[in-house]
Design a protein around this nucleic acid. Structure first.
Length: 130
RNA sequence: CAAGCAGGCUACCUUAUCGCUGCUUCUUUCGAGAAGGAGAGGAAAGUCCGGACACCAUAGUGCAUUGUAGCGGAUAACAUCCGUCCGUCGUGAGACGAGGACAAGUGCAGCAGAAAGAAUGUACAGGUAAUGCUGUAGUGAAAUCAGGUAAACUCUACGAGGUGCAAUGCCAUGUAUAUGAACGCUUAAGAGCGGCACGCUCAAUGUUCAAGGGUAGGCAGAUAAAAGUUACUGGUAACGGUAAUUUUAGAUAAAUGAUAAGGCUUAGACAGGAUUCGGCUUAUGGCCUGCUUUUUUA
């Protein structure tokens, strides 16, 4: 089991992020939203993921940092389900769409459900192709 | 004890598990792994001043524009800081102050008053060819004698070029001209150049030679500095000098978190570096010191 979240698994390329926002699909489980797309990645990893919190909802940098940390932590603990299931590589972007500062418990529950929904969605998308 | 004034310090801690970003050493199947050690603030914030640094001319001259303004000092520099005088406020500890000049010119001015400067006149007296021509009274802080006002123009002294690390330099990739050099043409218009003028540099098209630009990526800039601590020393102080000693974030879609348990003033406020320093301003939990006033007690 791999609970690490090293540099290689972070979404960094500006090109990938633009592609993600223009062509990506999304699933959401309040207060989280996941934008994803199947793409080739510069590094040899299953998924590259990034997190984002809009400045509009949270003015203070401290709050934004905290939410991003919580999201990264929840992803780190539960990403293995995804890694073990998917066959192609994906780019992820997690957005926080709530308006209140959450607790880790809320984020963790939402993250588990969100990743499950993502797996269900990709499974149905891939079935007709086969 | 209460109310208040001034200043300083600090910014939850401990353990376990998982995890993040650099650094050093070792191992390596060159993918990486292991160990050690380091890892946000007093305001990192607002971006309000002043520097360093980079490029544009080693940023020059005049005007315009604009900043500062008792006096003396500190400093790389400042609108900051220190000392001091004066003024205002406060019982006081203290706080605050755009505190140079109305000795050149222009402007502005409530009430009262005929009239506050280009306009006119009341009463009494004097005087004249005639006239507010002269004096006194009257209004007012101030009456053809001037005064007040410069967070009014202005004057004086000193200062200010512009753009900001997404600056700037280099590397690889790579396609076709928006690049560079030389020659030649022109001396008009234009660009750098930003309010204007001067001045400086470049310079259409063409020929030859050389290699670039956009876009995405990497490296440098980029963390050792007007640095901290201690001792001695000069100075009322800000601050300076000498010696010893320490190394203290360096990311780039952006690192400090999560979970569990325990403790404490019982959920610990305000709040997250982004080229970097000195200030100012604003937000804010706790603790300590000195002082003032009133009352009580001795």
């Amino acid at each position: 089991m791999n609970y690490r979240f090293p540099k290689e698994e972070k979404l960094k390329s500006k090109k990938c992020i633009e592609l993600l926002f223009s062509e990506g699909s999304s699933v959401s489980k309040f207060p989280l939203k996941l934008i994803y797309t199947a793409t080739s990645l510069p590094k040899d990893v299953p998924v590259q993921a990034g997190v984002s919190v809009t400045k509009r909802r949270f003015k203070k940098a401290v709050t934004r940092n905290r939410i991003k940390r919580l999201m990264r932590e929840a992803y780190r603990l539960h990403k293995n389900d995804v890694f073990n299931t998917i066959s192609t590589s994906y780019a992820f972007m997690f957005l926080y769409i709530g308006k209140q500062e959450p607790t880790f418990e809320e984020i963790e529950k939402s993250m588990i459900r969100l990743l499950q929904k993502f797996l269900e969605r990709t499974a149905t998308e891939n079935t007709p192709l086969k």
